[in-house]
Write a protein that binds this DNA or RNA. Structure first.
Lengths: 326, 326
DNA sequence: CTGAAAGCGCTTACAG
DNA sequence: CTGAAAGCGCTTACAG
């Protein structure tokens, strides 16, 4: 574990530290023969630049944060691995670290101070609730930040989202094409943009649908389906606003002797891993989570390198994945 | 975003930079009145130490890595959030960052170089397969490292695991207590310690059990159960070596007209979120993942602060969580 | 294109 | 207990 410094590389290559630094950083203004000498010295010594020293002068941490809500809220969440994967895909080739911050109620401030003390160049915020002051303070501080999903209240911040209303409309159209007549929906929480948009998009397509409310959790899917069956026993098509809720709701139908999709067609939303653990496998609206996460990383990187660039958001189009449930 | 330095704090407080540094770092050898002056200066200026500058001299990154396998392998994995949560719990109060490394086949080396260039103080390795050269090289380099789970081949490395054989025995005992006579098991992959131990521990309790092999994935649970039903149509109790496999296997039983738990009792292993998405909810052997992850972090921290400390591993005792499936 | 030099912001022996 | 000073390892104007 002998620590090799740039000084040493320069000496071995017979050049100055400045020149050695230039080839390490790929500056194009280095003579070919010197470059070669330095490269040879690098590999012979096994040199690796000290990141702290570099950071100190470049004023970049080369690290971004992924700020998550607390464990309880992440636990059933089937998206985490995909988000991490998508971000990693764009960030790693650039040598940028992904630091995970799973926050408790009082610890979201951490992101702010990590940004201020130069530990992080920017942050991606997941599952931000409307009361959270962090996004506002980040904007005020001029820190690079992107939100996963449109914020409830409009604010001048970059976000990446799927076209929620279009996705819900896809689900509605599918149920109609299947010839279903007594159509219902189990919604997400109505104090979130996704919950609102999925309901609105669906009703635009199926205005007379029955509406029962859930909150995206599996458990709420169970309760909502019980409620729905009581409300409308002969329902024959249901759009359930998250795969996780569908995962809870389908067994309720079975318990009531209703077959899926013969008696009741089900369409979910997300195309998360929860869709595959449904019986039968879930027809659902696909959100390309990993691609969206990759785009968040790209947007964040752009803000970091171009602090004065205009704020833009990007919306992905959803698609319908037809499986067995509807 | 004006950057406040220690220099400035010292000037405001009317002391030297050295003294200011001492109170920032909580050195006890500072006169009370000076300490007060510095503290006041810190809060009035909003000072936050520059991490890179500190790292450069302390030679610590104050960051640890969590090295995961590729997305495909993590996707259905219900443990990720719990692991992150457990590690975060111990690491955050110490101001240590958790950096996530989701590796592809060729990128596990990243951990090595991040360690060498001072970007990481240590790493936790998850799902290491026997062919992976990384653990060996980490040991050779003397880097702080802990493994999630016992390595297949014995090696002088710290790991944290659950007592797998004891857990499997718990499952066997449960099925016997339920009065089951034709007992079987669906195993995990036999080239992993967990897969081997769960089978061994189970057979020690139920020596004459039928054995069908799976690989911990949901899909393999489906296939294995089909196979088992063909092999032993009147099986009445099955220990399935992961909740995820059980999640796939139970619907197969239903499809064959067998009720759970009346006709066939099922006991899983993990107590992950997959246990709750089973119908009926899964009786399973609980692995306290978050606590285990917290312990991994503690072990790693100890290695970082005490490089010459002896290698120790820690084993958690599992417990049986009785729900509805068996 | 190249090198000598300054400087990034901190911690830590070393004297006093 | 306190301060002046050295030094961590790099990058980057600035001359040449």
């Amino acid at each position: 574990m002998k620590r090799v410094t740039l000084e040493e590389v320069a000496r071995v290559a017979g050049v100055s530290r400045a020149t050695a630094s230039r080839v390490v950083n790929g500056a194009s203004t280095v003579d070919e023969s010197l470059r070669h000498a330095v490269e040879k010295a690098i590999s012979s010594t096994g040199y690796l630049p000290n990141i702290a020293a570099r950071s100190l002068v470049t004023r970049r941490a080369d690290a971004i944060g992924l700020v998550l809500p607390d464990e309880r809220r992440m636990l059933g969440d089937p998206h985490l691995a995909s988000v991490v994967s998508g971000v990693t895909r764009v960030v790693r080739p650039l040598g940028i670290q992904l630091v995970l911050m799973m926050t408790g109620p009082g610890t979201r401030e951490q992101a702010l101070s990590d940004l201020r003390c130069g530990r992080l160049d920017g942050v991606i915020l997941v599952h931000t609730d409307p009361a959270d002051p962090v996004p506002g303070r980040l904007i005020a501080a001029g820190s690079p930040v992107v939100l996963a999903g449109r914020p409830l209240e409009p604010m001048p911040i970059t976000y990446v989202d799927v076209n929620q209303t279009a996705g819900a409309a896809l689900a509605g159209r599918r149920l109609k094409e299947l010839g279903r007549r007594r159509i219902a929906t189990i919604t997400g929480p109505q104090d979130t943009p996704a919950g609102q948009d999925r309901l609105r998009g669906f009703l635009a397509e199926v205005p007379d649908a029955w509406v029962v409310h859930g909150d995206f959790t599996r458990q709420s899917g169970v309760a909502a389906m019980e409620q729905l069956i009581a409300l409308c026993p002969d329902v024959d098509g249901v759009f359930i606003a998250s795969d996780l809720m569908a995962n809870g709701a389908i067994p309720v139908l079975h318990r009531h002797g209703r077959k899926v999709p013969d008696d009741v067609a089900i369409v979910g939303f997300d195309d998360s891993s929860a869709a595959l653990t449904c019986e039968p496998e879930l027809t659902t609206v696909r959100q390309p989570i990993a691609d969206m996460a990759a785009e968040m990383a790209r947007q964040l990187l752009r803000q970091i390198t171009q602090p004065r660039a205009p704020v833009t958001s990007v919306i992905f189009e959803p698609s319908l994945v037809v499986r067995d449930s509807g």
